[in-house]
Write a protein that binds this DNA or RNA. Structure first.
Lengths: 195, 195
DNA sequence: CGATTCTTTGAAAACAGTCAATCTGTGTGG
DNA sequence: CCACACAGATTGACTGTTTTCAAAGAATCG
């Protein structure tokens, strides 16, 4: 299945589209392949797109003064990525986004995306819906990180995102959970006995 | 200034509205006064509104198995409150929302709110804009809690939200930062010397 | 292979949490 | 108006968790 077909299926799962609607959308799509570790966005740049992850997995993170990465979010296939803040406010982004695995993203220039929203109300609704879902997910994550111990956060992750657990290097999982790789290693040892 | 006038000013700061537009909006408003500690929403209930905080300050929090409160968010005047997840998915809410101070909120029933969005595109845009801002704020908060020590989180809070610092009891600030009241007390002592 | 990066392990130190007691301020009822 | 009760805030001693630093094993990639 091509990335575009994947995106079409994703859309059809959520909303109903005529063939015409789809051609309008498809016309605005740009496909970009990313190799593992390749940047989609780097701190200081200006983000101008909306990005749908068709294949692979991206991460969004910051780097602190000590050079430590802090992963805000993973975006596996069928999720969206980007930095709406940079886009909305036309400011330099504070985040880095790169590919955890070789990935394929579908890019929309913001102008095209806004036109799609204006032209296809159903598309606009979907966008809002996704925004709300993102906000919900974000707030659940806040609750997790302010209320749980390292071990609880790990357990919560492997039950909430079992499919991601195997795809992501441990040090990135540690960074996502807000703990050190050493701590994560010890927690795993304690829980699973080995490996 | 009445709560409704406050809301009107808030809107006019962000979007332009004709008098007719405003009367349509005002017609959908319900005003609710909350005493300190009074609930707007309690875990297990179904949330059906959109709520604008005109005066005072609300908090949204969960209570864990040990009976400890974890504050996800404060909503002072000119912010929105509620639980979109419960609203969207028609599920029992996982959160509690109550008044930190005596407060006034403006409530919109969801049906009315949707009608406003459909009827006034400019209102719909504002809602999206707020949603995006909320998401940005949420993600900044995630970064703070996964990357900073207790002391850094406290310092970040008092510089980012100086106006809130004086209005909120210390134990609630501790809960918001994800630390214990005792730890917060010691951090303050260390930093400010006293009080 | 060989080099780099990732992961694990160990020991020590820093950090934050717990429990219990004391102190403070506020508000209420006698 | 005072005294008391109560919730919130602070302090101290202790415990437990997590980090740090250093090193040794895996795994991965060119």
């Amino acid at each position: 299945m091509t990335p575009l077909q994947g995106f079409k299926e994703y859309l059809l799962q959520k909303i109903s589209l005529s063939d015409d609607d789809w051609s309008v959308i498809a016309a605005a799509c740009t496909i970009r392949k990313l190799r593992k570790h390749q940047y989609l966005l780097q701190e200081g740049e200006y983000w101008k797109y909306h990005a749908f992850v068709a294949e692979g997995c991206l991460r969004r993170y910051t780097i602190d003064n000590n050079g430590i990465e802090h992963i805000i979010q993973f975006s596996p296939e069928n999720w969206w990525a980007g930095d709406r803040k940079s886009l909305m406010e036309n400011t330099a982004t504070l985040y880095n986004i790169d590919a955890v695995e070789a990935s394929t993203v579908i890019l929309f220039r913001d102008e095209d995306f806004q036109q799609l929203c204006a032209r296809l109300p159903v598309f606009n609704n979907l966008v809002n819906h996704i925004l709300q879902r993102s906000l919900n997910a974000s707030q659940e994550r806040i609750q997790v990180v302010i209320s749980m111990t390292a071990e609880e956060k790990y357990l919560n992750f492997i039950t909430s995102f079992p499919q991601l657990n195997n795809r992501i290097p441990r040090h990135m999982l540690a960074s996502f959970l807000g703990i050190t790789p050493e701590s994560l290693s010890r927690i795993k040892k304690k829980l699973h006995g080995r490996s």
